[in-house]
Design a protein around this nucleic acid. Structure first.
Length: 432
RNA sequence: GGAGAGAUGGCGGAGCGGUUGAACGCGGCGGUCUUGAAAACCGCUGGCCCUUCACGGGGCUCGUGGGUUCGAAUCCCACUCUCUCCUCCA
């Protein structure tokens, strides 16, 4: 959520930022007008309340309180009526302002390039070479099905489209990836968290997933309508909201968290895209990395976060490139986002494996996470960052495609072997 | 699911319906003392909002939302959460 104060002080700045994202900016004047009305109403109500408080204090100081109360009661009743009348529109105005404000995306950082869609994203750097094969590399679903480690058919029977059953060495390899990712996160100083994957509506709202992305979310019914719980689409949600409504001490920052969780997404609007394989699933696993940090260093921290994520793919020996997302492609919460895309030989293309964002104070304001630099300082909002420190499914797909052998078997990347307990999968699905 | 207890400031812990935004202790900050530190002593020490160039002024806030009252942290109702016991359970 944007700071109302920013709209008041620099409306043009907000207008420009909105246009860069390709959305209209009429909301600025609409909100400012509502805000003017709101403040006028507050001033009116509070003046009346102050008057009333004077009378009430008079009674409490009087020797004969009963008599004083009796005397002043008519005046107070009159004030009560005025207060009620003056404040009548206030809740409505506040609700309108909050509702409008909550739908505005974050202000983009100056370094974000112009552009309306992914074609305008900028290549920042790339690492590694796509491997050369002396045979036609297969897509991962073919490799996985041949080896008997990926089973899409039975998954469909259980749950429908966009689910996968991992079997034997496949399940094992997936678990190895989890271990590897969490291990590297710990080495990089992240504290491992095992959070709930069902969260309340207000938690989901606080990290900016609602109300804009409600159609992407699975909801679990509660006993009452307002007791519904949401399945997290990413561990960014519980990790970012972990310190909700807290004031953190400045010397404790940055806080860095990691979590391995399942993630659930409806993928509405993605019909027909990536229908095969592990790329786009309703349920997938991910290791997430989240920072709560000081405002002045958050953009430097974003670079660190990106290198934490890219380091994983260097160690796995998978070629990748880092893209800086353009204005139109940058997410709602984010001021600046880098995508890390890894090479998939079977698809002959790079695919997103991690999206690293600096959400500045946008989520912190919604979630109310603040910091106090020292004992006398005023609280200020922290900056939050998030990115995946390992997408399990997509990385598994990349490993299958990059490390496939001509005979249909698979070589396990060196760094994964201690976690997997084997170094290769043979064409018959056995491990070695 | 059944029975009880409780939710107060960074922490602990008071609080007859009327200068209680909240005693007291701890912690934190500033100062005196000291070569320095500790101890001792003195002072300050929640958050949000409106208003003001500023100094300041004002409103709200004792789990949340309602109610009673001229006035509520204190009384009433509902909800949420925590703890103890029983029951059940991965």
């Amino acid at each position: 959520m944007l700071n109302l104060d920013l709209l008041r002080r620099e409306p043009d700045h907000v207008r420009v930022a909105a246009r860069r994202r390709g959305i209209g900016a009429e909301f600025v004047d609409r909100i400012l007008e509502l805000d003017r009305e709101r403040r006028a109403a507050i001033t009116g109500v509070e003046a009346l309340k102050a008057e009333k408080n004077v009378l009430t204090a008079q009674i409490s100081r009087a020797a004969d309180k009963k008599a004083a109360a009796a005397e002043l009661r008519p005046q107070i009743a009159e004030l009560d009526a005025s207060i009620a009348a003056a404040g009548e529109r206030l809740p409505v105005l506040e609700q309108q302002i909050d509702a409008e404000l909550a739908e505005i995306p974050n202000i983009l950082d100056g370094s974000v390039p112009d552009g309306s869609d992914e074609h305008a994203n900028v290549l920042v750097r790339s690492w590694g070479e796509p491997p050369a094969f002396d045979f036609e590399p297969r897509p991962h679903w073919e490799i996985g099905e041949r080896l008997g480690i990926l089973d899409f058919e039975r998954a469909a029977r259980l749950s429908g489209a966009r689910f996968t059953v991992l079997r034997g060495a496949g399940a094992r390899l997936s678990r190895a990836l989890v271990g590897f990712f969490l291990d590297r996160a710990a080495r990089n100083g992240y504290v491992e968290i095992d959070p709930p994957v069902l969260v309340t509506r207000s938690t989901m709202w606080s990290t900016g997933q609602l109300t804009k992305f409600a159609d992407q979310m699975y909801v679990v019914e509660g006993d009452a309508p307002d007791e519904a719980l949401y399945l997290i689409p990413t561990a960014e949600v519980p990790l970012t909201a972990l310190h909700r409504d807290e004031i953190l001490s400045g010397d404790g920052l940055p806080l860095r968290y990691t979590a391995h969780t399942p993630c659930f997404r409806k993928e509405a609007g993605a019909a027909g895209r990536d229908t095969r394989g592990l790329i786009r699933q309703h349920q997938f696993e991910k290791v997430e990395l989240v920072w709560l940090t000081m405002p002045e260093r958050s953009f430097d921290d974003l670079e660190t976060l990106v290198s934490n994520a890219t380091g994983l793919y260097e160690q796995l020996g998978i070629a990748y490139r880092v893209m800086l997302l353009c204005a139109g492609d940058t997410g709602f919460n984010s001021a600046k986002t880098y995508d890390i895309e890894i090479w998939l030989p079977g698809a002959n293309t790079y695919r997103e494996a991690s999206s690293c964002s600096n959400c500045t104070d946008f989520q912190a304001r919604r979630t109310s996470i603040r910091l106090r630099r020292d004992a006398t300082a005023k609280p200020e909002f922290v900056h939050t960052l998030n990115g995946s420190g390992g997408a399990i499914g997509r990385t598994l797909a990349a490993i299958l495609e990059n490390y496939q052998r001509a005979d249909g078997g698979l070589t396990v990347p060196e760094v994964l072997r201690p976690f997997a307990g084997f170094s290769a999968i043979e064409p018959d699905g056995s491990t070695r």
